[in-house]
Design a protein around this nucleic acid. Sequence first.
DNA 1: GATGAATGAGTTTTCATTCAT
DNA 2: AATGAATGAAAACTCATTCAT
Lengths: 193, 193, 193, 193
Amino acid sequence: MGQRKTTPANREKIIQAASQLIRERGIDNTTLADIAVAAGISKGTLYYYYSTKGDLIFDIADRHMNNLTDRIFRWLESSGQDLPPRKVFRMVLDTVMHSRSRGQIHVYLIQEALTENPSLRKRFVEEYRRWRGIIEEGLSRVYGNHGEYATMARVLLATIDGLILQRLIGVEQIPIDSIAGYFEVTGEAYVSR
Amino acid sequence: MGQRKTTPANREKIIQAASQLIRERGIDNTTLADIAVAAGISKGTLYYYYSTKGDLIFDIADRHMNNLTDRIFRWLESSGQDLPPRKVFRMVLDTVMHSRSRGQIHVYLIQEALTENPSLRKRFVEEYRRWRGIIEEGLSRVYGNHGEYATMARVLLATIDGLILQRLIGVEQIPIDSIAGYFEVTGEAYVSR
Amino acid sequence: MGQRKTTPANREKIIQAASQLIRERGIDNTTLADIAVAAGISKGTLYYYYSTKGDLIFDIADRHMNNLTDRIFRWLESSGQDLPPRKVFRMVLDTVMHSRSRGQIHVYLIQEALTENPSLRKRFVEEYRRWRGIIEEGLSRVYGNHGEYATMARVLLATIDGLILQRLIGVEQIPIDSIAGYFEVTGEAYVSR
Amino acid sequence: MGQRKTTPANREKIIQAASQLIRERGIDNTTLADIAVAAGISKGTLYYYYSTKGDLIFDIADRHMNNLTDRIFRWLESSGQDLPPRKVFRMVLDTVMHSRSRGQIHVYLIQEALTENPSLRKRFVEEYRRWRGIIEEGLSRVYGNHGEYATMARVLLATIDGLILQRLIGVEQIPIDSIAGYFEVTGEAYVSR
DNA sequence: GATGAATGAGTTTTCATTCAT
DNA sequence: AATGAATGAAAACTCATTCAT
């Protein structure tokens, strides 16, 4: 008994195990016992780090969102260097929705926020606003800041969410490339409308 | 002794009650006991009509999807009459995502399909394909059938899903109108690309 | 499976079993599983009748208090018939604190009210007031209603509680009779003070 | 690195913290983690001093009882100096039941003794006997030692316990003074019966 | 002496489902 | 058709206790 090894971040092990299980089965079908087993610890230890399932989920969601925000920020920075718009769109769509582990869990977390966790929901609301803001700024860099990009940013964001959802359902292979193409063409048009 | 002899579609009462509760709390937070109470019947009766919670959910999802399909079909028909594109887009976005009761429940049903109900999932996959097909055809009517509308249909569909999600989260008032405007402008451009 | 017999008041069986266990071990050492087993039902059935441990305890406490109130009321009525004071005191002390099952559980219930159950506490406060009122009136019948009996009633009530406590601890056999004698003598004196 | 080198009675800090928490919430609702936090030490340290929750409680109860015994002894001594009976009663009632921290914890400790801790219970039994003895002797000093004071001592002790209980419940302000008056008047009568 | 991470046995609670009536 | 009492398996949560450092 006692601990095992040098405790290489048990918290991290929990996050990893929980994230994966949630990705595979959703939140409600992932029990704390499952997580504990997958993380190779006891239920008690899980409790030691997160005194509530809600706490754990919140932390996962928190890291998830920070992660997404970071990606988008990085996109914002890189998009300053005169990349061709198509490449930029591809990158956004790709990074945000494709980073397997991330995209898969996104919808489950939203669900949780909706039904159980008001503070998580608040967090999502804020983050969505921020994301839209960043995307807006990115668009104004790509196309020059003459023009209003709020709507386009909104559509981009919604499209990403919708695609994540459809990928989860398994509708079919999603042709990121041609969708990026769509935004390239239409973006141009929308700006110079 | 005290039963209604008329029994005016108990099944309907169940569907209505269940739909509303799910809309408000999600599927996992809606118990059969809740539904029975809300429908004004007993748990036993509920089981008389649906021998499983899954069955009930499936039926709700089924009706939900049929309903959506019907709406889109109706749009397809009306869109033949030379409506201005903006109006058409507005209508699609509006009917599909705004019919309160429908949109609110959509994501929960998808969730259920993902985590519990493989046959429901299959059903969703098929339906999504069909929806995309119908939208594609509608677009080709609006813009003339020279051109490929698969991608645009995909984006439209994804946008709708994404907006439903964001409305659920409560991100902010969604300006359906300006989004319809976006698709009007960009649609034009995309077609004549 | 299904039910057993003609369901001769399962609720009653629960109350009985729970009361006895609490009497023997206190509330915190009585688990719902214990109660279910003792009542010969399943944990699920217990939940069917009381959806929370707190609810069950409240009901037990409620019945307990109603019971005590009834006893005291009955005493009040009988005390009108010119009983000699000693007999009256003996009766009060006896009935209230001796009814084995009742007295034993009293303190545990108070404890629960103190630490967990604010509404139960409120209930106790009210009941104590009522008890004091009844005892006061009884005293005024015994001694004629010239005089103030509030303090004496208070002392009587406190003495009863204290004796219950001491009996629980098992201090020693409590000589109800001589204590009744004490109140007889002193009551006389106090009245004509 | 960060320990106090002085360690000014960690044990004392534990006792203080635990006593207060128990006073506020009862024993079963006070966890060792709570106590450790309140005492500003770690759970491990707590175990260094008390190898069991029971041990800690026993120590608290022990000190509590010694304290009470001391008070009553002091009363016994002072009561030799021809204090008027009313003052004496007031003092007893007051010191024993009013010393906030003490009275509040009394009932919880009894509870614990009843349900968990047989040796603590034995201790209580002994102590109650002792208390009654002391009070008896005190009474014989106040009233002269012609007479039997066992019953009166018992009533006094029971009254105190009952009042403590009622104060915990919060029945209402307890008029110590008029109760002391009651015992003054009735004591006189009882003695000269 | 002191720490806090780790544990597991137990406890309450939840709820879909069954079935005699 | 309709009822609701009964169930059990599973889930989340609690916390005293241990022990390597």
